[in-house]
Every structure is written in structure tokens, then in C-alpha cells.
Amino acid sequence: MTATSTRDVGGPTGGEGADQASALNDRYGAPIKRKQRRPAPWPVELYRSGLGKKYVMAITGIALMGFVFAHMVGNLKMFLGPASFNEYGEFLRELLVPILPHHVALWLMRIGLIVAFVLHIHASYALTRMNRQARTVRYQSRQDYAAATYASRTMRWSGVIVGLFLVWHLFDLSWTGTGAPFYRGDPYTNTDNSLSRIPVAVLYIVANLALGLHLFHGSWSLFQSMGWNNPRFNRWRRNFAWTFAAIIVIGNVSFPIAVLAGVVDV
């Protein structure tokens, strides 16, 4: 891709003016060198653009929001006791049986989530690189922000914290356990054993606060990225974002606190 694009729409580009312009370009304001690429099918073509990546970011973000919400609500069963909680785990494995064989629906969801995660992280990485290239020499004095929030300026850090936590969380409660006694198929006991360790409980709380920050900006931002902008509902977008973030944080943080307080106990 170059500035004087071949995707000309039939207008008055080219000619003498363009020559002068490109002569100027050689000296000042030359386009950032981006990789030259072969034409590709349109979804790939869309993803190559920054705006397309933002769509992917937003759509995968919505999928992840759905997962985070369902995960939180499902875990509330912890408060109904071990039988109820473990039965919920069993329900997930038996989801859509007999339409699908055992575990298949769960695996489909897992694959969907993995794909969403990979795309979300790849898009955020690529956009971050694009942004770095767009200002190679930073401001030498302190920039005074008028609208950007702490949440919006730390998206990549809150995202990285959530991502790393997620890997740890999978080891902790799904795969192997992380030191505390771990029994496959008994998530209630595993949760209690793991979160009874104070540093682990603190880690869960911190990671969920990071997730809350991420969602506070993300679940507002996605409306703009998706082009969902209408005077009829615009004033609800901010409210939605902070309510959603608050529900997730309060729900998720309640688990380590309940374990430490002895409400959840084997």
C-alpha cells in the first residue's frame, strides 16, 4: 500500500500535481513503510486494515464478554454448595447431549474462545505496533489528557495481566493445580483449596480488577468500533460499560472473599 493508491476511484489523482506531491513526500511526511502484500480474499483484506482489526477486536471482545459473564454467573453456584457447583460442571460437559456427543458442545465453545482470544491478542498487538510507528518521537513534555481515562490508556497492560492470569488460572483450576491438593472432577474442593492461600486470593482479586478496568473502557469502546452510534441510545453506552464491568468484578471478587471468609468451605 502506498499513499497514491492504485485503488483510485476515478478522480483527479496523478498528473503534475501528484508529481510535486510525491517529490514533497520524499522529503517530508512520507507514508510509514508497511509491508507490501499480495491481494487476498476480502475477510483477510478487511483484517489487514486497522479499522478491520478494530472490528475483530470488538467482535472477539463481545464473545469474550459473553464468556466472562456466563463464567461468573455459573460460578455463583458455588454459594449453593458442592453438589450444585460440581453438577454445573457436569452440565457443561453434557451440554446439548443428545444432539451432540458428550463434551462436544463444551469443546466447540472452547475452540471458539481460543480463536477469539488469539484474534483479540493478535489484533491488539498489530494495532499497538501501528500506533508506535505513528509517533516514533514522543512528546518531550508531559501530555495533559482531557478525555482519555486511566482505563483507556492502560488497555494493553490490563489486557496482558488478564491474559497471563488466565493461563495461570487454567493451570490452577482446570489442568494440574498449582501446589494445593488437586482432585480432577471436584472443582468445589479445588477452588476452596487454592483460594484459601492468601497470596492466591489476592492474585485473583488483582486480576479481576484489571479485567474490570479493561471492560470499563472496552465495553464502551466496542460501540464506537462497531459503528453503533445513535442519539437514541448513545447516553446508555457509558452506563452499560461501567455496569457491566462492575457486575463482573463484584461477582468474580466475591469468590476469593467467600473462600477466605469460610462461606465456601469443604
Binding site: P31, L51, M130, Q133, A134, W220
Partner: peptide, 24 residues
């Protein structure tokens, strides 16, 4: 128009994170 303008924009500038700093 939208397509060519955006594609040209992305040859020079960064991407939007919806900070809202521009509007301010």
C-alpha cells in the same frame, strides 16, 4: 470514498482506541 480515504489514512497514522482525546 470511505475506503480509499481510510486506507490512505492508515498509510500515515495510528489506529483509534476511542480515547476521545481528539474531540476534546
Amino acid at each position: 470514498r470511505t475506503e480509499t480515504m481510510v486506507d490512505t489514512m492508515e498509510d500515515f497514522f495510528g489506529s483509534c482506541t476511542n480515547h476521545g482525546e481528539c474531540e476534546a
